[in-house]
Amino acid sequence: MMQKKNRAFLKWAGGKYSLVEHINARLPQANKLIEPFVGAGSVFLNTSFKRYLLNDINPDLINLYNLLKAQPDAVIHDTQRFFTPEYNREAMYYDLREEFNQTSDPYYRAILFVYLNRHGYNGLCRYSLGGRFNVPFGRYKKPYFPAEEMIVFAEKAQRATFTCLPFEKVFSRARKGNVIYCDPPYAPISKTAAFTSYAAHSFGIDAQTRLARLAVRTSAKRHIPVLISNHDIPVIRELYQGADFTNLSVKRSISQKGATRKPVPEVLAYFAPRTSPVKPDLSVIAGNK
C-alpha cells in the first residue's frame, strides 16, 4: 500500500479518495490497470501498477490530462494566474465560463477547466445538451490552487495513456495480464437522484446493462478480471449476478439538507477471471479466425 494518500487535483462528484483502500484490497496484481471511467483519478493516483490506460468520455478532462502530462510546468504556471481575488468574482466567473464555451483552443480550455472546477458550485462538472458548461458560480472565500496535486498527477501520468472513447472500446483494448476497474455514473437510488449529464451523455439502465454484460464476458471468456463500483441497490445486484460482492457504506451527500445526509450503501463487484481449463479455439491456432 502506498504510504501517503494522494488527492486528485480536481473536485469530483463521486470521487473515490475515501474508498481507495477498499478498492486496492480487491484489485489483483496485474501489469496494467485500465479505467474506462477515470474521473478525477483517485484510484490511479493511489495504486502502483506499472502502466495505466485511463479513459473518460469527457473530452475536456482528457485534453487537460494530456496537456498536463506533456507540459506540466506551463499548465500549472498559466492556471495559477486565475487563482487570485480578481478572478474570484461572480461577473468574472461567468465571463470566463462563456470564454470556455466559445473557445476551441485546447490549451486555453484546459486551463479554464481547472479554474471552473475550483470556482464553480460544489466542483460539479455539468454540460447542457448543447455541450455548454453550465455550472453556476460557487462563492468560495478563497479557492484552493492544487499546484502540488497537479505535479504529482503529471509525474505519475508518464506511466499512463489517456483516451476519450466509449467504455466498450476501452474493454476491447484490454489484454490478459491487465485488470479493469470501472467507476461508472451510478445507478440512481431514486428517480429524482439521477445525475447523468456529466458529459452531455446520459448513462441509463441500458448502459448499466451493457457494462455488466461486458464485465461478465471479459472475465469469463477473456480471463481479464473486472472490478466495478456502484450503488448497492436491487437492480445492480441483479445485473452483477455471479460477481463477488464487497459491501461499503459511504458518507456522501445525496441530500442538500446536511442533517439528512446518511451513509449510502455501495458495492464493489469483482468478476474473477475464469480459471477452469478452456478448450483451445482451433480456428485461431489455424490462423483463420
Rank of each mutant, 00 (worst) to 15 (best):
Y140T: 07
P280R: 12
P36M: 07
Q71V: 14
E148T: 12
H231S: 15
L96P: 03
K32S: 11
C125W: 08
A157E: 04
Q256F: 09
L129F: 03
N101Y: 12
I236V: 15
F9L: 10
H201Y: 14
Q241E: 05
R274V: 14
P280Y: 04
N247Y: 09
R175G: 06
A40Y: 04
S190W: 02
N247L: 10
P143Y: 00
H77W: 01
Y240R: 07
S197M: 05
V38N: 01
A8F: 09
F271W: 01
G130D: 04
K262N: 06
T260A: 14
A193Y: 07
V179M: 00
E148R: 13
L68N: 11
A147R: 15
L282D: 05
P85G: 12
Q208E: 07
Y93Q: 01
N117Q: 08
S190G: 15
R118P: 09
S48F: 07
R252K: 15
R109G: 01
L68C: 11
N122T: 01
T209M: 11
V20C: 13
L61E: 02
T161H: 00
A207C: 05
Y108P: 06
S104E: 02
A74I: 13
N46R: 02
T196H: 13
F162R: 04
N178V: 00
P185D: 06
A8Q: 05
L124I: 08
G177L: 13
K142D: 02
K32F: 07
I111N: 08
R175W: 04
R51G: 10
G287W: 00
P184L: 11
R126C: 12
R213D: 12
Q102P: 03
P28L: 07
F133D: 09
M150I: 03
T192F: 03
R261T: 09
E238L: 02
I254S: 04
K142L: 01
N58C: 06
S276E: 14
Q208T: 07
F44Y: 12
Y140H: 12
A194Y: 14
E86H: 03
W12N: 03
A91R: 07
L45A: 13
